[in-house]
Structure formats: structure tokens, C-alpha cells
Design a binder for these strands. Structure first.
Lengths: 351, 351
DNA sequence: CTGAAAGCGCTTACAG
DNA sequence: CTGAAAGCGCTTACAG
């Protein structure tokens, strides 16, 4: 390692410890007695004779060489990087989808950059810019409504697959839940159980909240009942505050459906704070089959989303888009599964 | 944009759409009528006259230029990247710490790469290698016990700050909870509440589990009581399975402490499955003040960890290490806070 | 199969 | 303050 000797001959101020020395492809080439090009080929899938390939492998082991990904990306012009921008990493739905995306990406030899926007359009714009600077291969994105609408105008250098939420542009591939149907199922279930004054609490930042509201209103109208939908910021705190208000009103609802698990937490807290028994004073149902929803008493009736399938499908759509850039836009709509628990037990006197 | 014209003159197979065209610093330089060097300086903190700086800004706007981070990192030899390797992203403790790390990093103009090992030493080795290939600036790492012990031998090209878990090498900066003290507090609380046969369930993959076990045994011995500690894989399923077994034994415990929130979930499930009332049949206490721990009935007594402080402190330690590589190793030990809820209510007949 | 050479898009001494 | 030139560490046509 001639390089090291050279370093030790520098002035004291410039001396680096051995551990700071990074060995490059040139060092490996020298150690293996081949050209850097051959090392590069041996490391990748280039055509190299078995003999040289083994020499290179030995030299890599001896030197402890690790390729510099920045250099590789710059030169090869493909970064092998998937961007994943989600609205709220505290929401286990996104954690789970993220894991699935990472799994798929990993198997394809790609890494993923995860960004969390906290439902803030400004941060979405920021991260979109960052993704361009990273020259990502493709993006999987759960945008706020605001950004979803603007996505048409924004020219991105990479394909994007929308998850969980869609704009109305139909410009991007997407994988979403059948939100209207899922929420209608939930409401219909409540009606069958004998509830009549069913309120709905929806997140105001996403198209998902809006679609679930649609399903809510449709199901109630079909049954000849009056919808009463309210929008809040998608946080447990906002939901709890709104509900405490709501449940103090004279004609308070006997059941509440909510559009995600954060809101469901808030709803439970509000009920507890007001000493309302679930479900006898207030039935509750929501989305996402998190572990805790079966741990609370009573267990919560929820729509379970196929989170893994959402992540895997998003990656699959992305691959196919990369392979065939011109193919028509596709939208995969998945169904949720209603898991009935004690929080929506039948009203006394109803079968 | 002469470049574009050139492209359209290529053979059909090579034609790229305009959106695939990436504009480089040369294009901006040409548009601004300056050298690439000046553009680079104007974009950074180099010395540039106000007039030229404005010209460059205008050219950037006009061209939609976005710097190529791979090129910047390669050339400047610093990536501005923090690695964060955690054991289980489904554990909200790590989600929360991760958010705090990202926050600190973001304010310092750095990005973070998050990797999830699922407590698997092989994946830890893999990601450690990846971090080297990314040439990260520094690493924040919650290792398994196995890897923590081997960390001494492994030469890394970047400083590492251990969180949540430490080896016994004392080789790396670290920020950890005072696990012994925290668990001893929990056990002492149970003793004061009248419990006598207090079992302990600990994760077997981390030093954290081991230290909490120490605190558990110390507190019981101090009170002249017999410890009964069992180790399981750190998952709700493993905890539930072990506990179902345990609670079927003739002399079953009247209280169980566990070393993290995943195990706590498993413990609750086991109790429910066996129709044991909490706390009258079995008291329960654990770690991490997750939202659901106060939502279940009864609420769970837990040690709350200062998650944000852990993340911020880890970043602070990393910065200082980068600034002064030779300074002595530091270990920051933070205290937990015991939050008492119904799951450890006093045994009937005890004050 | 192998090597010499060019170049990815930047930044940064080096001169002026 | 500004520009020309070199070079970060790779990969990849281009020849052989």
C-alpha cells in the first residue's frame, strides 16, 4: 500500500490515520495486478475470466475495498434509488407500507430514501426538490390534497406512483384502497347493528379523508339517514377536541366513524374523558388494524388495509413504468376487510 | 439550450424527452454568462459579487437547475449524511428517536439514511457495509448485543454514537437510559403496592434487556424477594407464548414487568387469553409511554423514556466528535420517568 | 476477455 | 471577486 507511505510523509497537519484512508478501485487494481476497468467488471456483471475474477476478489478482501456509491451513481447515471414520501411516519399505516416498499426495493437491489412531510405542502415541495437532486429512479408518494392537485403542473424527472391518496388528474400510476366502499361497509355495519345517528370524523388533509366521507354519506343516504360529517386536522388531539365539543351537543350521535387510526385514538380519548361507555353510549369504528385496536376494551371495529400489498404493488407499478415508460396509466384499487369487534356491538334490543 | 437541439438530432432510439433532460451547472453558467466555478460559488457560500450572484440566481430559475448531489458528494468528499441503524422500526421508541435525529440533522443541513435490521446481526453487518459505501459522515446505531461486542474489532471509517444499547467496550460515544435504575424503580413501585411474586420478561437481543434485568434482580434482592427472570425474542408473539406457559405454572407470579412495549403488548394478550384480570389477577408494567398504553383498560404503568432528548443528544455527540475527533469518549445517561396507571393498582388490603 | 482513455457533474486550489 | 484546470472514484464505449 504505497499510498499509505505517501500519507505518512506528509506534514503533520495532513497526516491521516489509517482508518480514515479510503481505498479506491485503483488500489484494488494495483493489488490484483489488473486494470481498474477489470476490477469494475469483476465487481459487476461484466465479462471477466474466472482467474482474474478470483484475483480481484482476493484483492478486495485484502484491501477491504468498498465501492464509492456517489462515484458509481455519478458515472453510471442511475442511482438505484427509490424515493418514498409519506405524510406521517407516526401513522403505523405508513410505517407498514414503508417496510413493504423497502422489502421490494431491497430484493431488486435498490435502496429507498424515506421522507416525512407531516402533511405540510411546503415540506412536500422541499422533498420533491431533494428527490430531484438525488436523481432518484422513481418516487412513491402519498401527497396531501393540495400537492396532489398541483402535481400535474410540476415536471418531475422521474416516474411517480401515488399511494393511499390520488389526485383527479389521472396522470400517475396509483395504488389505493377502495375508500368509498370500505367506509360504506363500515357505516352499513353500524346501521345493521341498530345505530341511527352516525357521525363521521374525517382528516382534512388527504383525498383519502374526502373519499371516505363520500362513502359515509352515500351509505347513510341509501338508508334514509342524515349524514353529519366533520373535518379535522389528522391528529389524535384535533379529533379529541372536536369530539368533546360534538358530544356535548344536545342531539349527540350514538356512533362515530373516523377515517384513520390517529383519529380513532382521539375519539376513544374523548369518550373516556366524557365517561361515555363504548359502545352503549357511543359506538366507534375506524381504519387500520393496529395491534392496539384489539387490545383496548372493547376492541375496535376497523377496516384492515392490505398494507403489504399496497407497498409491493406500488413497487411493481414503478418497475413496469420504468420498463415501459409509455404504457397507459394504471390505478390499482384494493379492497379493505372489515374486522368487527366490541366497539360496534348491537344496540340493546336489536338482534 | 443547444443541448436539447443536439438531442433531437440523435437517432430515434436515443431521443430523450425534454423532461428527461437534466440541466447541469454548465448550462446555468452559459445562461448566466459566467463560469461554472462562479455558479458553484454563488450556490454555496463562496465569494461572489452581488451582481453575479443575482445573474446566477436568475439563470437557475430560468433553467430549473437542481444540483446533482452524487457529483457534489464525490467531488467535495463529504456527503453530509448521517446513518441511522435501528433494530426495529415497528417499535415506536425507534420511530420517535428517528424523528428527533432527522430533525436535528435537517437543521444542520444533513440528510439521514435509515436502516432497519429487525435485530438480525447479519443485516447489521450488511448495513454497516452499506454505510461505508455511502461514505456517511457519522452513524447513530442501536446494535444487537452480538454486534455491539464485535464493534471493537470492526474498523469503521466514521464515528459512531450508540443509542439505547451499549457494548462494554467504552469505545464509542453513547446515549442511553439508566436502565438499571428505571427498572428498579418499576419493581420497587410494585413491591410498595403489595406485589411479592414479581416475574420479569426481557428481550434477549439487546444489552438494554440485560441491564433492565439487572435492575429487576437488584430491586427484588434488596427487598428480600426472589427474582424470576426469563428471556424471549423481542416480539409481542414471543412474549405472549412465553407468558401463557408461565402463567399456567402452579406458583404463578402476581405481577410481571417487561423490558419494552412490544413485550407489554404480548403480556396483555396473554392475560386476556387466559382471562386474567389486570391488575387483580396479574399486575403489569413495562417501558415506553406509547399512546395505546393509556388507552387500554386499565392503563399501563410504564417508564417513559426521553425519546426526543435521546435523538437530539445523539446528534449533538456526533457533531462534537466530528469537530474534535480526539476528545475522550462520552456516555450520556438519561433517566426515565415512571408513569403510574391502573395496571399496578395496590393489591387489595394494601394501602 | 482486457486495458487505456474519456467523462459523469460537480468543487476547489491556483492564478490573476 | 473571477476563470481555467484538475480531479473526486467510478463505468463504459472503443480498440484490440
Amino acid at each position: 500500500m504505497q499510498n499509505r507511505l505517501y500519507l505518512f510523509m506528509n506534514t503533520a497537519a495532513k497526516v491521516k490515520t489509517i482508518s480514515e484512508m479510503t481505498v479506491s478501485i485503483k488500489d484494488v487494481a494495483r493489488a490484483a495486478g489488473v486494470s481498474p476497468a477489470t476490477v469494475s467488471r469483476a465487481l459487476g456483471r461484466g465479462p471477466v475470466s474466472d482467474a482474474l475474477r478470483e484475483q480481484v476478489a482476493a484483492a478486495v478482501r485484502a484491501t477491504g475495498y468498498r465501492p464509492n456509491l456517489a462515484a458509481r451513481r455519478l458515472r453510471s447515471q442511475h442511482t438505484g434509488t427509490i424515493g418514498l414520501i409519506v405524510a406521517d411516519i407516526r401513522n403505523p399505516f405508513f410505517t407498514a407500507v414503508g417496510r413493504a416498499v423497502e422489502e421490494s426495493a431491497y430484493q431488486a437491489g435498490m435502496r429507498v430514501i424515506l421522507c416525512n412531510t407531516d402533511e405540510d405542502p411546503e415540506r412536500e415541495a422541499l422533498y420533491l426538490g431533494l428527490m430531484q437532486e438525488e436523481r432518484i429512479t422513481g418516487l412513491i408518494f402519498a401527497p396531501t390534497r393540495k400537492t396532489a392537485d398541483q402535481l400535474t403542473r410540476r415536471a418531475l424527472d422521474f416516474p411517480v406512483v401515488l399511494i393511499d391518496r390520488v389526485g383527479n388528474s389521472g396522470l400517475h400510476d396509483a395504488v389505493v384502497l377502495n375508500n368509498v366502499e370500505a367506509m360504506a361497509d363500515l357505516v352499513t355495519h353500524l346501521i345493521e347493528r341498530g345505530y341511527r345517528r352516525i357521525g363521521g370524523l374525517f382528516g382534512n388533509a388527504s383525498s383519502t379523508g374526502a373519499q371516505r366521507r363520500e362513502g359515509y354519506e352515500a351509505a347513510l343516504r341509501r338508508a334514509g339517514l342524515m349524514p353529519d360529517a366533520r373535518l379535522v386536522a389528522p391528529s389524535a388531539e384535533a379529533a379529541a377536541a372536536e369530539l368533546k365539543q360534538w358530544l356535548s351537543e344536545p342531539q349527540r350521535p350514538d356512533a362515530i366513524v373516523v377515517s384513520n387510526s390517529l383519529l380513532l385514538m382521539g375519539a376513544i380519548k374523548a369518550a373516556r374523558a366524557m365517561s361515555l361507555q363504548i359502545p352503549s353510549d357511543l359506538a366507534l369504528a375506524g381504519f387500520d388494524n393496529e395491534s392496539w385496536t384489539e387490545l383496548v376494551e372493547p376492541g375496535m371495529t376497523v377496516i384492515e388495509q392490505p398494507v403489504e400489498q399496497i407497498g409491493h404493488t406500488a413497487m411493481a407499478l414503478l418497475y413496469e413504468r420504468l420498463k415501459t415508460p409509455t404504457q397507459p396509466v394504471r390505478k390499482v384499487v384494493l379492497s379493505g376487510r372489515c374486522i368487527v369487534r366490541g366497539s360496534t356491538a348491537a344496540v340493546v334490543g336489536v338482534a
